[in-house]
Design a protein around this nucleic acid. Structure first.
Length: 566
RNA sequence: UGUCCGAUGGUGUAACGGUAGCACAAGGCCCUUUGGAGGCUUUUGUCUUGGUUCGAAUCCAAGUCGGACAGCCA
């Protein structure tokens, strides 16, 4: 449990929601003979984000809970925007989240041949035709939500002619966009998706898997339901925007001799999270315009970004469990995610002492040159985590925030004349504040109660505050990146808004911090808590001479809250 | 003035005709060698109006509000 890079076993606790209810009912009725087969069907045109994680947890979760399987299927029907870079990252991310598709990895492009044959069937049955309308004309003929469409002049083309034309489309005899294959349904339908939707379009481009084998490519609506049927999917779970497509999903499967019982589609609400954007288009924009460092920038809501930020798979899974699955399109409070992250990190993070913004402290009654190795607890939440030694000496650094010359009421930290406990060490008292010519504080002169160390005569003395520190002579320097939310408002892409206007200018602050020496051998696979500050993880671009730590999330700060209250 | 879908505290959800519960957030207290964690505790909710019923968050009707749909994207 302390190694968050290990593929963790998704928790055994069974969630409950309306989709799981349907699956349970189908199991009870024996609809699919006891089979449960779901699928996660990403288009390889972007990195996975936390919204996909919700879908992954749902689909793989349902399979796991019911002794079923979940397929990973790349929905690669549009070669003009898809890329292998994405198919690799998607697999890595799903695996990292803790899920396993076994041998069941497929591509919609695996079925291009069969899909073509099915299309021929449709044409023969008089249920599809080759249409001559241009893209512009199609828009005009389609009508509008409350205006019926008009039938294409090609609609009643004879079957033989359709067959010939479709074969010629496939053979590459026609230029891009010249013709489409359309389903023959109902141009007057109140559902626009039923107004003779396009099934195939001509695209003379290389496909990342099928190369130049095809120059016609199936549309999503046509390819998706049939891919589900071919794979014998039982429950095809997607997001709410596909609800309107369901009649078409059903129509296509009902026209063709697909394996029975065929799959059914169910829709749930996609995740909307506060203080972030979730659409692939917008995330891509952030990457391409270099507003972030890449898809795995720790501020991104991508799985890769969260991973680099130090968030664990378990935290993401718990979050997905907590938010549930419904058809209500709400806005999830980012605090829910933050809580899941803290909860998990609290259990597994190794506690360490680190000073982000140092101020020098000299203990005037502590012998010069003396060094003590003090015992420090690695994780109070986990007795098995053990202890370590931390060097202590006369000159220390403490956090600037932990000293105030003129403190407000309820300030428990160091101020002139006051005492605080140095964590794992002595109680000290501030005697003198040394300033430079400009009046800036450069050093604090303190005296230590030399009997107050653990095991000492006055170890039990209670002082109001305990602060962290590092020994100046032993501290190592590290780059520390303090990440904050990427946007300043909860709904950066709300109506009439340009999300880029709301980028948080302070979403990244880079500091050189002073760390206790044990952090010199920090492990990228482990998680750390810099005591009293935040959770951190070692970034992958650390170099031995200068480690770099990313702040995953701060500790809860009730003092900051107190101050806000004024 | 189209079709489909939805509505439970501030947020996310549970209750499947029978005591509106949980988590987060917010407030208070206790504890604390992390102002962390933990423990205890308080506040706040069934969109509206009718109907069915001994009894409705749940079923029905109408309304209100919100979302989705007019790519040869997925």
């Amino acid at each position: 449990m302390s190694d968050p890079t290990q593929t963790p076993q998704p928790s055994a606790e069974r969630p409950s929601d309306f989709i799981r209810d349907i699956v349970a009912e189908d199991l009870k009725q024996g609809t699919y003979g006891g089979r449960v087969v779901t699928r996660f069907p990403p288009e390889p045109n972007g990195y996975l984000h936390i919204g996909h994680a919700k879908s992954i947890c749902l689909n793989f979760g349902i399979a796991l809970e019911n002794n079923g399987v979940c397929h990973l299927r790349f929905d690669d029907t549009n070669p003009t925007r898809e890329d292998v870079e994405y198919v690799d990252s998607i697999q890595e991310d799903v695996r990292w989240l803790g899920f396993d598709w076994g041998k069941n990895m497929f591509y919609a492009s695996d079925y291009f041949g069969q899909l073509y044959d099915y299309a021929v069937e449709l044409i023969k049955a008089g249920k599809a035709y080759v249409c001559d309308l241009t893209a512009e004309q199609l828009i005009e003929y389609r009508g509008a939500p409350n205006v019926p469409g008009k039938e294409s002049p090609s609609r009643n083309r004879p079957v033989e002619e359709n067959l010939d034309l479709f074969a010629r489309m496939r053979a590459g005899e026609l230029p891009d966009g010249a013709k489409t294959l359309r389903a023959k349904i109902d141009m007057a339908s109140s559902n626009i998706h039923m107004r003779d939707p396009a099934l195939y379009r001509i695209r003379k481009v290389e496909h990342h898997r099928t190369g130049s084998q095809w120059c016609i490519y199936p549309m999503y609506d046509y390819a998706h339901c049939l891919s589900d049927a071919i794979e014998r999917i039982t429950h095809s779970i997607c997001t709410l925007e596909f609800e309107v497509h369901r009649p078409l999903y059903d129509w296509i499967l009902d026209q063709l001799p697909v394996p029975q019982p065929r799959p059914h589609q169910y829709e749930f609400a996609r995740l909307n999270l506060g203080y972030t954007v979730m659409s692939k288009r917008k995330l891509l924009q952030l990457v391409e315009e270099k507003l972030v460092s890449g898809w795995d920038d720790p501020r991104m809501p991508t799985v890769a970004g969260l991973r680099r930020r130090g968030v664990t798979p378990a935290a993401i899974r718990h979050f997905c469990h907590r938010i549930g699955v419904t058809k209500y399109n709400g806005l999830t409070d980012i605090a829910l995610l933050e809580h899941s992250v803290r909860e998990d990190l609290n259990k597994r993070a190794l506690r360490r002492l680190a000073v982000l913004r140092p101020i020098k402290v000299v203990l005037t009654n502590y012998p010069e040159g003396k060094v003590e190795e003090l015992d420090a607890t690695n994780n109070p939440e986990d007795p098995n985590a053990g202890t370590r030694k931390v060097p202590f000496s006369r000159v220390l650094y403490i956090e600037r925030d932990d000293f105030m010359e003129n403190p407000p009421k309820k300030y428990f930290r160091l101020f002139p004349g006051n005492e605080v406990r140095l964590k794992y060490a002595y109680i000290i008292k501030c005697d003198e504040v040394i300033k430079d010519a400009g009046g800036a504080i450069v050093e604090l002169r303190c005296t230590a109660d030399l009997d107050s160390k653990s095991g000492g005569a006055t170890a039990g003395r209670k002082v109001k505050g305990t602060i962290h520190w590092v020994s100046a002579a032993h501290a190592i320097d590290a780059e520390v990146r303090l990440y904050d939310r990427l946007f300043t408002v909860e709904e950066p892409d709300g109506e009439g808004r340009d999300f880029k206007q709301f980028l948080n200018p302070n979403s990244l602050e880079i500091l050189t911090a002073k760390l206790e020496p044990s952090l010199g051998t920090a492990d990228q696979a482990k998680r750390y808590q810099f005591e009293r500050l935040a959770y951190f993880s070692l970034d992958r671009d650390s170099v031995p001479a200068k480690p770099a730590f990313n702040r995953t999330i701060t500790l809860k700060d009730t003092w900051a809250k107190e101050q806000r209250k004024g």
